[in-house]
Design a protein around this nucleic acid. Structure first.
Length: 908
RNA sequence: GUCGCGGUAGCCCAACGGCAGAGGCAUCCGACUUAAACUCGGAACGGUGCGGGUUCGAAUCCCGCUCGCGACACCA
């Protein structure tokens, strides 16, 4: 006899085995057996995890459960669903662990993958494991290298000597976006800027398209905003300022406010600007050199920290403001250098308009440079920011005051206004003034309208061992080329010693057998073949000595295109076949954490667009819809001084929390899970105690998928009880009964289901379906709880068909228990492809409803009316119900909201 | 500092501009039990962060403030 009690520990592994053995979730591609071209497709993707030694934490299953529920739901709705999983397996932790212990990162990575895969599989996700990818597998990274080759051939990959972030502790350079306030994002180590020769990818060439195509995406607005900010498009003009008394020609600046040119009273160059040395007068040389040297040593951290105190030095040189005649005394303005001007943005030089730019203003005030206002603020602004003595002045007086002493106002005016003190654009509003002055400059050949982006090219090389090798050869003459595609994958050499070299050279430089090759070159100078080459070995006539690139690619590389490899994961001739790509792409829903808002998502979009241009993919964007799951936090404790106390040093008693050691009261707060706070929840523990279905359900029930929410161990049993009740609704679980473990009699005696329950079920099916469509899992679960609670008031009234339909809607959420109940209901086939139950709209409505009756917006009574009552009937019923309130009053108006309420507005 | 998101019962959270409460947890009472746990039944609990406005009617829309979280942070 099957077990009477709900025993997740038995049924969950059982059904996982059945699914695996039957290949239930194996998804056919176009052309494969079982592929149905008539079905619509749905590609639902999780951000694949880094296989960490710590294993899964409860944050992973949050997104994975959501996508699994939707994948199962979509299958039942008749979609062909692609739902794969894999491993973003290159990464620094395995390499650092390897350096410390000598264990090869491949071994660590493999065992981490094994462990995490076991954990993920224990949760019953319906992934097609035949499509599993691992970015460190040569059969995977050969295609990462292949894509790099396409980038290289398209001129989008280049070597450049650029100032980069060097992290001593990690022994590598990092991308700008991996460094936060001068410290590494991973490990929080100090970083310094130094120039190094690096591979760069020209993502800037795609800036405009990356920006514009955001409009076509169904993504959270906050992510789009972050990407827009990151790309940082700004429209303005480049303006040339002729250097006075020098043969250096002119300095080009970028400004978004060409309309303020008449207010430019000085210029500032970044300390790194190439003209600095040439412009500096002998008298200023010592001061300028000292400043440049100090700036070079300062990390960006120091630069920003000192932002409050702006510093700079006069170069001794002057320039002519192009809007004035050179003879005009206002034309000649000093050129300074200051580190508040950045070398990497615009032209590395600015015209300073202190009256209308807060940074310039700060600097001007400090160095007593002239401030000339040229944009008149609107009256409202003048009033609000006027100094006390001028507060009560009229508009004209305020304007005169502003023209005279803009610095006496509460702040500097940086918005749009009306140009003044600006002869050629006098009286124009800012947008027109910008246009006109730009045209004027263009006409004189002294400037032009320009668009600038904050986005920089992507620093694509790392001085690490554990990453994809570049398919690149360097010749002795300094030139470089690609290895032949036939030699892909270029495998990472086996090395005993992959420790950082202690210099700026990457560890791969130590793999001498791998490093040097003899490259056979054809008549066109193309490399057709390579072979290992040892020092002293003879070269054939058509061979050239070459050295392999020793940098490796950053971790982002593998994750830039993994969603494409899933399409055709086993293909050893192509990264993916066009007909397969054409069917599955784009990804219909991509779920993951918001921490990848900019980097991963921008890089992947960039690669995708390149592949689109080359004809390898047919959509401009990879991820049509994106959803960010929120963070799962946990309780943590603070003592009275606000110090965080690890969870195991706090006890709960007398309805409060106390620090064990001191007995002082502690305050419960929520915080990110962290090892140091000892508040990390391990999914394995939850699975062992309550089962995977409970974990899945709890993670979805705790709150909306976006938005962070605290893990509260006390709440977990609540959803477990719901599953138990669901079980008991169908199965006789009283072990003392003769039919223990069997279906309840009402489910096997052919009786019809209760009509009221039928209505309740239709309501539930509708609600759950609607909620799934809008990813409101918490309310869907709540609806099912209501249904079960309703049924349990009289379980014997439930009919078999009703039980079956309930099991089917429960299945996406709690697939194991659903599968078990489905089988006990007499089905031999798994329920994964059963059609989603239908509902009848008419059945979702009650026959009569309770109408609230308001008088002047306050509820004064209630009455019951038939659901199809006319408006007049409702008015009638309402007025009767609150007749007392209406006595002697005049009814001004009666508002009827169908199915909800009647509001009677009275007077007197 | 700027931008974004959010504040509803002791806690997690529901509520097309229409009766503030769906669900879960915790609490209390009761049933079961020798007892406890489990389970089951029942009860109590707030007027929606604060102040204005729009409306017949505001948790919901608008304005200002406040607190929390997140992102960016001299980008000319």
């Amino acid at each position: 006899m099957p077990s009477a009690k709900y025993t997740p520990r038995e049924i969950e592994p059982h059904w996982q085995q059945v699914w695996a053995a039957q290949g239930t979730f194996k998804t056919p591609n176009p052309g494969d057996a079982g592929f149905d071209p008539k079905k619509p497709k749905y590609y639902i993707l999780d951000m694949f995890p880094y296989p960490s030694g710590a294993g899964l934490h409860v944050g992973h299953p949050e997104g994975y459960t959501a996508t699994d529920i939707l994948a199962r739901y979509k299958r039942m709705k008749g979609f062909q669903v692609l739902h794969p999983m894999g491993w973003d397996a290159y990464g620094l932790p395995a390499e650092q662990y390897a350096v410390q212990t000598g264990v090869h990162p491949r071994i660590t990575t493999q065992s981490n993958i094994t462990n995490m895969k076991r954990q993920i599989q224990a949760l019953g996700f319906s992934y097609d494991w035949d499509r599993e990818v691992d970015t460190t597998d040569p059969e995977y990274y050969r295609w990462t290298q292949w894509i790099f080759i396409q980038l290289y051939k398209k001129g989008l990959a280049y070597l450049a000597e650029v100032p980069v972030w060097w992290c001593e502790a990690l022994g590598t350079v990092l991308a700008n976006e991996e460094v936060i306030d001068g410290r590494s994002e991973r490990g929080d180590h100090p970083c310094v800027r130094r120039p190094m020769k690096q591979w760069m990818l020209k993502i800037t060439e795609y800036a405009e398209r990356l920006l514009a195509d955001l409009e076509t995406l169904d993504w959270p607005e906050s992510i789009k905003i972050q990407q827009r900010n990151w790309i940082g498009k700004s429209e303005g003009a480049e303006v040339d300022f002729e250097v006075a008394d020098s043969k250096e020609g002119s300095i080009r600046v970028f400004t978004t406010r060409p309309d303020t040119l008449y207010g430019a009273t000085y210029m500032v160059l970044a300390p790194e600007h190439p003209l600095v040395a040439k412009l500096t007068t002998p008298g200023q040389k010592a001061a300028v050199d000292a400043y440049v040297r100090a700036a070079a040593q300062k990390s960006d951290l120091a630069r920003t920290e000192l932002a409050k105190e702006k510093t700079g030095v006069f170069t001794g040189a002057y320039a002519f403001n192009p809007v004035f005649e050179k003879s005009d005394p206002k034309a000649k303005i000093p050129i300074l250098i200051a580190d508040y001007v950045l070398t990497g943005y615009g032209t590395g030089a600015i015209m300073a308009v202190p009256a209308h730019d807060t940074r310039d203003a700060e600097f001007a005030v400090q160095y007593k440079l002239p401030i000339v206002p040229v944009v008149m603020p609107p009256e409202g602004w003048l009033k609000a920011h006027a100094p006390a003595e001028a507060k009560k002045s009229g508009a004209d007086a305020l304007r005169a005051h502003f023209a005279q002493a803009p610095q006496s106002f509460a702040e500097f005016f940086t918005d749009d206004g009306v140009a003044f003190n600006s002869p050629s654009i006098e009286g124009l509003h800012t947008p027109e003034a910008k246009k006109k002055i730009t045209q004027w400059l263009e006409g004189r050949g002294q400037g032009k309208g320009t668009i600038n982006y904050r986005l920089r090219d992507w620093l694509f090389s790392r001085q690490r061992y554990w990453g994809e090798p570049f398919p690149v050869l360097h010749f002795e003459d300094g030139s470089h080329t690609l290895i032949p595609e036939a030699e892909l994958p270029l495998r990472l050499p086996e090395m005993e010693d992959f420790k950082p070299t202690g210099t700026f050279d990457p560890p791969l430089g130590k793999a001498k057998d791998w490093l040097y090759v003899a490259a056979e070159v054809d008549a066109q100078g193309q490399v057709v073949r390579t072979r290992p080459w040892r020092e002293g070995e003879a070269l054939k006539a058509n061979e050239k000595k070459a050295r392999r690139e020793t940098n490796t690619m950053p971790q982002w590389a593998g994750s830039c295109w993994y969603y494409l490899r899933y399409l055709d994961a086993k293909n050893d001739r192509k990264g993916w076949r066009p007909e397969v790509e054409n069917y599955w792409m784009p990804v219909d829903l991509y779920v993951g954490g918001a921490e990848h808002a900019v980097l991963h998502l921008l890089y992947a979009r960039f690669w995708h667009k390149v592949l689109y241009d080359l004809g390898y993919v047919h959509t401009k964007e990879p991820f049509q819809r994106l959803f960010n799951q929120g963070l799962i936090t946990a309780f943590a404790y603070q003592d009275e001084a606000g110090r965080l106390i690890p969870n195991d040093e706090v006890e709960e008693r007398d309805q409060g929390f106390f620090v064990k050691a001191t007995g002082q009261p502690a305050k419960q707060i929520t915080a990110k899970m962290s090892k140091s706070l000892k508040n990390v929840v391990n999914p394995d523990d939850v699975v062992n105690e309550y089962g995977a279905d409970t974990l899945r359900l709890y993670e979805m029930f705790i709150g909306p998928l976006d938005g962070s929410k605290p893990w509260n161990p006390r709440d977990v049993p609540g959803v477990f009880r719901f599953l138990q009740r669901s079980w008991r609704l169908l199965v006789e679980d009283d072990e003392s009964k003769a039919n223990a473990g069997a279906l309840r009699a009402n489910l096997s005696n052919g009786q019809a289901g209760d009509a009221e329950l039928e209505r309740a079920l239709h309501k539930t099916i509708k609600k759950v379906g609607d909620d799934l469509e809008r990813m409101a899992f918490n309310t869907a679960i709540s609806a099912m709880m209501i249904f079960v609670n309703e049924c349990l008031k009289a379980p014997e009234k439930l009919g078999k068909s009703q039980a079956e339909r309930f099991v089917l809607i429960l299945a996406p959420f709690a697939p194991h228990i659903a599968e078990e109940l489905w089988q006990r209901l007499g089905h031999e086939k798994v329920l994964a492809f059963e059609p989603w139950p239908a509902f009848d709209e008419a059945q979702t409505k009650d026959a009569s409803l309770e109408l609230a009756i308001q008088v002047n917006g306050k509820v004064r009574g209630k009455t019951s009316v038939p659901a199809d009552a006319s408006e007049d009937a409702m008015k009638q019923a309402a007025q009767e119900a609150v007749a007392k309130e209406l006595a002697g009053k005049t009814i001004v108006k009666v508002i009827v909201v169908k199915g909800r309420l009647v509001n009677i507005v009275i007077k007197g």
